[in-house]
Design a protein around this nucleic acid. Structure first.
Lengths: 151, 151
DNA sequence: CAAAATCCTATTGCGCACAATATAATTATG
DNA sequence: CATAATTATATTGTGCGCAATAGGATTTTG
């Protein structure tokens, strides 16, 4: 076999492993999130707001690495669900401020009680392993981001 | 702070790290794949076929964890690009056999020359680290998959 | 061998992602 | 202060991903 001949093999690729793990996570979360009536992307937007209420679309987008093309329709769906309110900023009417409704705040407790424990069990490893792994994946993402930025 | 009170924090979540890394990979691959005229999902389908030509939709789907709802339109686009042929199996007309065109076979060399080296550089770590990390991510996916299967 | 069950692919509908573009508000500049 | 440049969000179009459903083709069963 020629050198580098298996570089293009699927099982050899970290990218495919990550791609595939992301889908597996989604499938694992889905039945849990169905109880809240949320999708995973909607759920992480809620997490951002649970950490600090009232943020602009841009702030949310920066934290999640998502642009308005993704967030605008997603936020409208969250509004229709009664989870958030969307209001123009008084001082700068270009900005739309997203804030939690009472229902949106209440959903946090459901997430804490039902989702967080279940996922810990699903991942099936200790907290330390989980921690180390998360750090590695974040490092990976950072390397990819910086590589993408200087081209 | 109450115990478990930061369980719902974004930076703490392995799932978000993986979700985010998957997007970063996609962004990193995009300019490289643009040269081939392929998207990343189309590219991994091509990789499956480069490993072994002529496979059914079901076989491809099993390897990539994708169903016909995703693959059917994707394969039609690959056909329109001139990369593959789609033909009904003579013995079992339920099955559609996907095989590479000459152009599809030729694209493998472009991938070997241009894409594989660039990605190795992007990830920015040694081959051993990459290997270990891939194994961990695959373990993670397997844990998530098996958890999802018995509910 | 006919009816039922199963299998494989395709279609439809919805929700991301993201590029490209548009629009409106704000700030900078001459 | 009017015009240009910039900023923030929204819209449009394309391509996944996946659930639900539908359509034939094959296999199983009675």
């Amino acid at each position: 076999m020629k050198p580098h001949d298996n570089v293009l093999k699927l099982e050899q690729q970290l990218c495919f492993a990550v791609y595939s793990a992301a889908h597996a996570f989604n499938r694992a979360y889905k039945p849990l999130l169905d109880a809240l009536g949320l999708t995973y992307p909607q759920y992480i937007v809620m997490m951002v707001l649970w950490e600090r209420n009232s943020q602009t679309v841009k702030e949310i987008g920066a934290k999640l690495d998502l642009d308005s093309g993704t967030l605008s329709p997603l936020l409208k769906r969250l509004e229709k669900l009664g989870m958030i309110n969307r209001t123009r900023d008084e001082n700068d009417e270009r900005q739309v401020v997203i804030s939690l409704t009472e229902q949106g705040k209440a959903a946090r407790r459901q997430a804490l009680d039902r989702i967080a424990p279940a996922i810990g069990y699903l991942v099936g490893c200790g907290v330390d392993d989980l921690d180390e792994m998360r750090n590695r994946v974040i490092k990976l993402k950072t390397a990819l981001d910086s590589a993408a930025s200087h081209d």
